[in-house]
Design a protein around this nucleic acid. Structure first.
Lengths: 173, 173
DNA sequence: GGTATTTGATATGATTGATAACAATTATCG
DNA sequence: CGATAATTGTTATCAATCATATCAAATACC
């Protein structure tokens, strides 16, 4: 996936106009035929996912948050008092990889690790005030710019149906 | 994305039963609340995409093909006489990264590079007989095991609607 | 109490994605 | 024609993601 923190710095450069479309014609007159590729669910899934993440990155660029970072903040806000392993597991992030991720958020004072009093092995991860503020702003940006555009493209009913099917695939496939 | 060639070797290990579900309960009784995360289209999109690729890898494991490799073979079959740049561009692969990918396929005798007679800079990429045979077998596996299961999960109408929306997002968002 | 497990962390490797640069070839245009 | 620009495949290189093994501290289990 292309959701680098570096890319977040100038995510606007990835705006639709300047970007090179995958199947775009190349001054050559004949675009290639996707053929059965367009019937492959996985292919369209990946393409759509890349596009959506790209737009997310762009919309939240002022706050310098990647989708993964945003999901961590959301989860921390919703589930106070949890440790690193619980947060990471819920998001499908491996514990070793979650360490550096938390380091990044903590160095920006968006969250903090606190030793648990019950179990002094675990670090309870808490949102800081700044973290809550950034999350609130991010939510607004996502709702107003990102999800709103998707709603506009698909229509509310289709969007809901899409979401339901994706969730179904993720959990029942 | 986790579609490594190494993973393809033992993709079966990723079968549903043995895998650790992201939001699975951890012997601890309380699963975390996803909250607004479950309303984020990008989140479900990514989750579904990972799951679908995982299953694809598993279904095509006997042929040792990743989704990306399969897409290249499909494209070569459908668009004979094209050079590396055209194939790579269509799939959204950067030219430098496509070199190693082609090396892999060519070393397995699934395709071959031929110098173009018109433009001696370009390499026309052609499917070999073995490539065509592997592609044919892969198509059957994908249709019978992979796409069939998705059809079963969603139903044909929903599957078509999902595909249409994803394609819409990929191309118009 | 002694062993096994869990938690956070480090190190490390593999894979993917992106950019710069280069040689060979071709296109452009004065 | 001939110089310059552009294109093609390639290499090198870097950043980011993902995965595994391992470790010390703390806890759980018998």
């Amino acid at each position: 996936m292309t959701v680098s923190k570096a890319a977040a710095v100038d995510a606007t450069k990835a705006s639709r106009a300047a970007r090179k479309e995958p199947a775009e014609v190349d001054a050559d007159g004949a675009a290639l035929q996707l053929g059965e590729l367009s019937e492959l669910l996985g292919y369209s899934l990946k393409r759509a996912q890349l596009r959506v993440f790209e737009d997310f990155l762009c919309c939240v660029a002022p706050l310098q948050l990647t989708p993964a970072q945003f999901s961590v903040l959301l989860l921390l806000d919703r589930n106070p008092g949890r440790n690193q392993t619980e947060i990471a597991n819920t998001l499908g992030i491996l514990r070793p990889n979650f360490v550096a991720m938390l380091d990044g958020l903590e160095s920006r004072d968006l969250c903090a690790r606190m030793r648990s009093t019950n179990d002094r092995r675990s670090h309870i991860v808490v949102l800081t005030d700044k973290g809550r503020a950034v999350l609130a702003r991010a939510k607004k940006l996502v709702a107003a710019k990102h999800e709103a555009r998707l709603n506009e493209l698909l229509g509310p009913a289709n969007r809901a149906a899409l979401l339901a099917m994706l969730a179904r695939i993720a959990s029942e496939f």
